[in-house]
Amino acid sequence: MTIYHAGDDSQARPYIDPTPLPDSIPKVQEIGTSSAPLKSAAFFIGAYCKDYNEDFMLCKQDAKGDPGACLKEGRKVTRCATDLINKMRENCLETFDKHWQCLELHNQEYYACRKDERALNKCMFEKLGLTKTIPGSPKGQTPIHDVAKPIYTTVQR
């Protein structure tokens, strides 16, 4: 496994990968969305791109460590996520912007931005029919983003 290291900021020139993907591999535009909007959209990407994401993860499991085996599936994942973010921006730009800006001001923690999140969830359900479901959350309980009075908020009691 490759371990992430913080970039060496002392370098004068920005780093350019000397070994980019060869031209024989079809190009796909990378997602240019930064971390806070991605985090805001995360559960909708999970709902909208479920099939592609699961396809990719199953492919990775079968590939047994071959990094080139799942490039096709990976491109589909990228395209699907780009598609969803574009749709979100077309349909729910206002609530989307509000939520990710709130996340960015609160250390990108969901619990601090439930109000904006509910507005976004509502808009996403009405316009695109996507709901936020937290995988692995206990059955029969209200999911944490819908709890009216959660115990842990930004105000300590």
């Binding site: 490759t2 371990i3 290291h5 970039g7 997602i31 240019g32 969305t33 909007p37 960015e104």
Partner: peptide, 25 residues
């Protein structure tokens, strides 16, 4: 800390990551 929500990356974004080329520790 810069943020943007549009999906178009800046030019050269594909090859500006050193993640893949870092040595394994």
């Amino acid at each position: 800390r810069g943020q943007k929500s549009d999906t178009t990356p800046p030019p050269g974004f594909e090859t500006s990551s050193k993640w893949y080329t870092e040595s394994v520790e």
